[in-house]
Write a protein that binds this DNA or RNA. Sequence first.
DNA 1: AATCCCGACATTTTT
DNA 2: TGTCGGGATT
Length: 806
Amino acid sequence: MSTYDESDAFEGASLAARAMAARPSPYLEGLNPEQRKAVETIDGPVLMLAGAGTGKTKALTTRIVHMLNTGKARPNEILAVTFTNKAAREMKNRVGHLLGQPAEGMPWLGTFHSICVKLLRRHAELVGLKSNFTILDTDDQLRLLKQLVQAAGIDDKRWPARALAGVIDNWKNRAWTPDNLPAAEAGAYDGKGPALYRQYQARLIELNAVDFGDLLLHVVSIFQTHDDVLAQYQRWFRFIMVDEYQDTNVAQYLWLRLLAAGHKNICCVGDDDQSIYGWRGAEVGNILRFEADFPGAAVIRLEQNYRSTPHILAAASSVISGNQGRLGKELWTEAETGEKVRLIGHWDGEEEARWIGEEVDAMQGGTRGLRGFSLDDMAILVRASHQMRAFEDRFLTIGMPYRVIGGPRFYERMEIRDAMAYFRLVTSPADDLAFERIVNTPKRGLGDKAQQKIQMTARANGVPLIEGARILLAEKGLGGKGAIELGKLIEGLDRWASLTQGELRRVALDADSVVEDGGEIERVEYGPPEMTHVELAETILDESGYTGMWQNDKTPEAPGRLENLKELVKALEQFENLQGFLEHVSLIMDNEAGEDGEKISIMTLHAAKGLEFPVVFLPGWEDGLFPSQRSMDESGQRGVEEERRLAYVGITRAEEVCTISFAGNRRVYGQWQSQMPSRFIDELPEDHVEVLTPPGLYGGGYGAAGMNSTLETRVAEANVYNSPGWRRLQTRSAERPTSQPREASKTVIDLQAVSAHSMGERVFHQKFGYGLIIGIEGDKLEIDFEKAGAKKVVARFITGTDDVPF
DNA sequence: AATCCCGACATTTTT
DNA sequence: TGTCGGGATT
């Protein structure tokens, strides 16, 4: 009955298989014995415990290629799941590379979510959805919940909708539907959680929409209640592979277990020591329990590290050994030389940033006895994103190019979401959430009152909002400017939709090009569309007044937003039509900004997982900040252990030079606080650590505290000196000579950039906005910013206001 | 309907 | 110290 076997056949791989079967497999030769075992153990459950930098992706991709080449599996029989699109993409690329051709034919290599979308589109009707359901992001989700909370007459001051969103997400992570919610959860969200959850799910079905959690939840539900469907996929996916298994939540675990129950050929790759997503539902228990869940599992440990020096590995091992209940791994390396992990304390956070700035500068030039590094080789990894500020400020001042990884993603930006709402409304007029989003953006004089009228009319007639608006207009239920503008908007939407008609119908027919049970696809001929979808997108943004809105906006962000809109339109070119684009975007939230020039990276420890850098700075190792107080308060010992794993992840990112630092004083929410060195510093192995002394007056910024005599700083000193971390630092420090005086930093002075400007000129800066030049000093300009106040900034980060695109 | 001002508040984040 | 959301104001 299934038509998959025929339709998904993959010719390329079988050709490759034949070609390679003739020779012994050369791709196996570069593997170490453990990797090789992981690659060749194909049948039965396998747990690959892969420590940081042990060639996990290599093993995983080679394993896929091996299965294909030996004819064990066809590409469409392998289910390979990752968490991020980036990981999926990389795997696809590497498999393709090993195969010597693009791995186009691996239809089931993707993220949990993207694979679930595919599955759910095929079986949507089993959970009451249509197969063209839309996927809501967290923003849509929150607005929906707000409406429900409001309708329930709940004081959203005491019980914010945000909290409800969190509760519901948690439930979904645990695969709890409204029907199988444990009794213990009844009290959630002031006792109204369960009822609101039920309402929310019902509303989603009404809207023919799902949130991210639903993608898994619905598929698990289908598997649990429809044996035939499950059996079909169990048969189909003969080999299952899972990356980052330590990050799976209960829903994902159930999903995998259900699918693997047939052939039991499941290979999970992960590292319990790198489980850092417990706070969003990941269960380390999943990986710890693997052997119990899958009896007879082969457990393979990848412990040979190809990334870091022995000192760095020793430091990481020493820290992580403080955790209980590990599966246990000991990283080792053939490398014999390398720098020790460097540890340094500073007087305060600003000095820490200043020191790192100078250090980066020096290392870039290859001074300090180290080889010269590119800025691209260096990264600063922080615990919390607010710590990035100190570095950004410092780097802007000294003209050090940097890039921030993470942060708001392209498709989460307001202007992008607005634009997308327009596109959504044009392709599916019944999209109420999109309608709500843009009905008064740009301002059309349609405030709360007018929008309520539309809502009521729509509800009374049981139609989508846009139809409600039509009726309201026809009944003359709205007057004045609002009525005229609303009329124009609806007229516009109709017109834009008509321009896309041909495309729409074609898309609906070959959606996913899957027809089950012998259904026939009927091809219909269409004339050429009246304009390309790219032109259409431009027309929509233009005629709706949306572009104009930002062109007239004088805030410093406006030019950037217009720039983003341009980029959005450019991104459209890669798709056949608007619909296809929207589908893609709802799942791919990547921010692949084209990077120019060498830059040092700043990111959170979480964002750094999976990355590596020759030079890594780990600032802010202070108790309360790292480990974070909140984590310890909320999760106690378990929290500390997750923080410790974060420390482990941080250290193991470094290949050659790893520098840990802390500050004795730090401004927290504007208040100065004295800080104690992190407990993790005590867990570093002395023999592998070199303690540096910061430059500055009286032989060290941190120690120089003594010259200050205010009560506050004495208290600070007392605290700091009493901490075990500090005592140890002192002893070690005394044993070693202080570091040589710093060589002069050699920032290139760019006088040309300065000469382009003059006193009193109005200029623009990416981060600080507009301001007037009030001073010139070397290659720096002193600027009185309208929003940010007076600052000295390197001239090349400044543009004259004439240059700013409006 | 839009703007302004005040108080509460403050990890980590992918899909 | 900054941001965001709500209530009061224009």
